[in-house]
Simulated scan of single mutants.
Amino acid sequence: MFVKLYDENPNPREVRKIVDILRDGGIIIYPTDTVYGLGCDITNNKAVDKVARIKGVKIEKANFSFICSDLSHLSDYTRPISNTVFKLMKKNLPGPFTFILEANNNVPKYFKGKKKTVGIRVPANNIIHEIVSELGNPIVSTSIYDEDEILEYTTDPELIYEKYKDIVDAVIDGGYGELVPSTIVDCSQNELVILREGKGVLEF
């Protein structure tokens, strides 16, 4: 399935079709406020396993993040955070950031492995926001960005579709993607550490 959605006003009917695919254990490729992402419903372990296979990594070693529609899901999957970290996230999200937080016991075991942290994303993109809101829980996400690939493959939705159409269940055309990934901020320790400088510049 290849579907065109517009960031300023995603078609609700098409959004529901995508959500049905996710609920059925499907894999989708979708736009964010940075690079295109590959993802599935967090509650479907077979789908998460498939995403890991597509990415060519073992789940327990994968640096997947959770895409949330807002910060209300935080306490579902993370340990309590300080007011300072919460205010920082609130100020910078939605936006091109991945915040690394301490995971709690609700994070699916197959996903957590030996890792004690989880990456949280709330992209400033209405398409994925509407999909996650309609789904009612986060989706597991990883970028299809790969430094070894030809650049157009990671930015042009039609080329992405050509490459992945036999591997995933839906590719959403939300316009050209970017080549700069999100900025990763580790908030799991006492001190904030920027692990990767990406598109986002933190406001304190």
Rank of each mutant, 00 (worst) to 15 (best):
D166P: 00
Y176L: 15
E8W: 14
F111A: 12
S143Y: 12
D169C: 00
G177W: 10
A47W: 13
K116C: 03
P108T: 05
T98H: 14
V140N: 05
V185N: 02
T142N: 14
A52G: 05
T43N: 07
T84M: 06
Y161R: 00
I21N: 09
H73P: 09
L101S: 00
A124P: 00
S82R: 05
F97R: 11
N45R: 04
K112F: 03
G200Q: 14
V132Q: 13
N190I: 05
G119F: 12
G175K: 11
D49E: 14
V201Q: 05
P123E: 14
Y161L: 04
T32M: 09
K116S: 10
T183P: 11
F66S: 00
K109S: 02
I139A: 07
R53Q: 14
K17V: 00
T78L: 02
G198Y: 08
K55G: 12
T98I: 11
K91T: 12
S72R: 11
Y30T: 04
G177V: 08
I67P: 00
V51K: 07
K116M: 01
I172R: 08
I29K: 01
I100N: 02
Y161M: 00
I184D: 02
T154V: 10
H129V: 00
R121L: 03
I194D: 09
S188Q: 05
S188K: 05
T154Q: 15
D20S: 15
F66T: 03
V168L: 10
A103Q: 09
C68F: 12
T117E: 12
Y110N: 09
L93I: 06
I81A: 10
E147D: 15
K163S: 13
S182K: 11
Y110D: 06
I167E: 12
D49P: 00
D148Q: 09
F97K: 03
I54S: 15
N105S: 13
I21A: 09
A62Q: 04
E162F: 13
Y145V: 02
F111K: 12
N126Y: 06
I81P: 09
P157M: 05
K87Q: 07
L101R: 01
D146S: 14
G95Q: 08
V85N: 12
V118A: 06
I160Q: 06
N9Q: 09
V140F: 03
V118F: 06
F64D: 06
I67H: 02
Y164K: 03
I42G: 08
M1G: 05
L202R: 06
M89Y: 13
S188H: 06
R196E: 01
I139H: 03
V122L: 03
I54A: 14
I28K: 03
L88F: 09
H73I: 01
T183M: 15
D166H: 11
E130C: 07
L22M: 09
N104Y: 11
K58W: 11
T32V: 00
I29C: 04
L202Q: 12
V57F: 07
N44S: 14
D70E: 01
N105P: 01
